[in-house]
């Protein structure tokens, strides 16, 4: 938290302190509403009056004054805000191993479902594109801020078949991303790169361009056989972790559909928001005035201000 006008804030605090002092002095002053009583101890023990109510009102006054003091000081907060120029490519592996059923119903179906969660959790305005890859990479949906359109495009992703060209997918995404702004790539795969360009080289280049690659590895530890073949569906976790590391992203492993869904949903939230300094003057003013009004009316409703 920073202040645009620290002196104004200090002045406001002084005024608030003076008001608090005045208030407490008025409380000490004997008024017609005061009641002198023989034994406070007896009263307190016998009646058990609710002391927290006036304390709550006091807190309301204090907080309202503090909020207004911050507002006057031009408060700036660092808060996660939706990224306006955010651009994300989701690269989904459609190689043959994605037909494996160790992740219910299949790795491919779970990946699509998780990609949908990512889109839904992304901040409005974030541009999202879709790339599928097996033996090569295909642009399914160019970057678009129309999230409904992107979700619909998920249906165009082809069924699992063929090899795994991770490097090609990364390169295609890199070429389609804007030259600046908040850019990133989400790579959802279950396999080992076995064709096309070297993904590590592309990931390193992406790192130099400040385009992080978030890699999600799908599959159970035991994996399984690729349907219709005798090949094992293996996953090269070390490589996926390295792509993420060199590009400035992160790696996550999803062993079931829920984990995958959660991982991408979380990623959608995290990657489409960025910490920014925002002017909170208006918010503090509204909160301060609202608190003042609520406290005033509550005090009025309770009989008097005490």
């Amino acid at each position: 938290m920073t202040l645009l006008h620290p002196l104004r804030f200090a002045l406001a605090l002084l005024i608030a302190a003076a008001l608090v002092f005045l208030y407490t002095t008025l409380l000490r002053r004997k008024t017609a509403h005061d009641l002198a009583y023989s034994s406070i101890a007896f009263f307190a023990a016998a009646v058990q009056p609710r002391r927290w109510i006036p304390q709550l009102l006091d807190a309301g006054w204090m907080l309202a004054l503090l909020a207004l003091a911050f507002a006057l000081g031009g408060v700036r907060l660092t808060a996660p805000m939706p990224v306006r120029d955010g651009a994300v490519f989701i690269c989904i592996d459609t190689s043959g191993s994605m037909a494996t059923t160790d992740v219910s119903p299949t790795r491919a179906a779970a990946a699509l479902n998780a990609a949908r969660a990512f889109i839904e959790e992304s901040a409005p305005g974030t541009r999202i594109g879709l790339i599928s890859f097996s033996a090569g990479a295909s642009m399914i949906q160019p970057l678009s801020s129309d999230h409904a359109l992107v979700e619909a495009a998920l249906g165009q992703i082809p069924p699992p078949n063929g090899a795994t060209a991770i490097g090609d997918a990364l390169r295609l995404a890199a070429s389609a991303l804007p030259e600046s702004g908040h850019r990133l790539i989400v790579l959802v795969t279950d396999g080992v790169n076995n064709t096309g360009v070297d993904p590590l080289e592309v990931a390193e280049w992406l790192g130099t361009q400040h385009i992080p690659v978030y890699t999600i590895g799908i599959g159970t530890p035991n994996g399984g056989y690729i349907p219709g073949s005798e090949d094992e569906a293996t996953i090269d976790e070390g490589a996926l972790r390295e792509y993420a590391q060199v590009s400035g992203g992160a790696y996550a492993r999803a062993e079931d559909a829920t984990q995958l869904h959660d991982a991408l949903a979380r990623l959608g939230r995290v990657t489409s928001f960025a910490k920014q300094r925002v002017d909170a003057t208006e918010g503090f003013t509204v909160a301060g005035v609202a608190l003042l009004v609520v406290t005033f009316l509550t005090g009025l409703g309770l009989g008097r201000f005490g």
């Binding site: 509403h33 406070i40 009056p49």
Partner: peptide, 15 residues
């Protein structure tokens, strides 16, 4: 909200 002053000391402010 009542403010009470104990005749022999102490104060109480409560609802």
């Amino acid at each position: 909200i009542v403010r009470m002053r104990g005749a022999e000391g102490g104060t109480l402010r409560a609802y």
